[in-house]
């Protein structure tokens, strides 16, 4: 039995095992991606269709300072959200990983519970909290009766709050997964060798949790850079992010080729940023 399990698979066995994933990736990921890539070199038809004339115009237009500026704002938002999720999520995941096993599952459940409600509805809930006559101002007003109301809704700060709230679980779960496997006797060893708690954390725990940090960061960074629903709802449509510009190309502007080019530019930049980030983390891991 055991020997059978350890035997290497033959090629056709691999194919059978990989078929569901391959099928999924090809049909729902590669083919649509290829379509967008092809669109990005086409021209917008007069009525919004696609005209099959090869052009680089869409990419040229994407590099206009107007769109690059919006792209930069989106990337910055992604970086801030990722950083904030890491700062909030790491201590929590650390605490969770060291919590007694029986209560741990309950705490983990609490991290996942928000997913039972639709993302859109949870974002709407933030509107109720942040609006002028909302929950936040009601609480602040009862504690500090004379303070002016806080106007957060329809600002970039509200967008950040919504993004950090929405993506925090994607940071906590991979962090927890890597911290939970962590062998705690390594800390004792570090202490035996004269390290204080902080030093033991920085030199032992932190480097060993880098895979979790990397996975969590990617899971938060990529969707927050391209987000368009949260900015729409919590930003009141007053701040444009690259996701909003792309969405508009596919809807009101009906300029699919330009929207496709912007999508590819965004993907390229995010991919480059991810690779650089991974390299840097790998460097950290090795030192």
């Amino acid at each position: 039995m055991l020997s059978k399990l350890t035997q290497p698979f033959r090629t056709h066995q691999w194919l059978v095992l990989l078929f569901p994933a391959l099928f999924w990736l090809i049909v729902f990921f590669l083919i649509p991606l290829a379509a967008i890539f092809v669109y990005s070199f086409a021209e917008r038809g007069t009525y919004g269709g696609i005209q099959w004339h090869f052009t680089l115009k869409n990419y040229g237009q994407s590099l206009d300072p107007l769109y690059l500026g919006i792209l930069w704002r989106s990337i910055l938002t992604g970086i801030i959200s990722t950083g904030a999720c890491l700062l909030i999520g790491y201590p929590f995941a650390y605490y969770l990983a060291r919590y007694r096993p029986r209560g741990r599952n309950l705490l983990l459940l609490l991290v996942v519970v928000p997913f039972w409600t639709n993302f859109l509805i949870r974002t709407y809930a933030w509107i109720l909290i942040l609006r002028t006559e909302g929950v936040l101002n009601a609480i602040l007003g009862s504690v500090f009766p004379n303070a002016p109301t806080v106007e957060l809704l329809n600002t970039p700060i509200a967008v950040l709050i919504g993004l950090i709230y929405g993506y925090l679980p994607f940071m906590i779960l991979p962090l927890y997964a890597s911290l939970e496997k962590f062998d705690r006797t390594l800390i004792d060893a570090a202490k035996d060798l004269g390290a204080n708690r902080w030093k033991a954390f920085v030199n032992v725990t932190l480097p060993l949790s880098i895979p979790g940090i990397a996975a969590g960061s990617v899971l938060v960074f990529i969707p927050t850079v391209g987000a368009f629903i949260t900015p729409d709802l919590l930003g009141g449509g007053k701040v444009d992010y690259i996701g909003n510009v792309i969405e508009r190309q596919f809807k009101t502007a009906r300029d699919w080729p330009f929207g496709s080019a912007l999508s590819f530019l965004l993907m390229g930049i995010v991919l480059a940023a991810t690779v650089i980030y991974f390299r840097a983390l790998q460097g950290q891991e090795e030192t």
């Binding site: 919006i70 009101t252 300029d255």
Partner: peptide, 16 residues
């Protein structure tokens, strides 16, 4: 028609 692109750009400039 194609002039829609100019409206979209103007609107993006307002939003930016």
């Amino acid at each position: 028609g194609e002039f829609t692109r100019n409206y979209d750009r103007a609107w993006t400039e307002v939003k930016a």
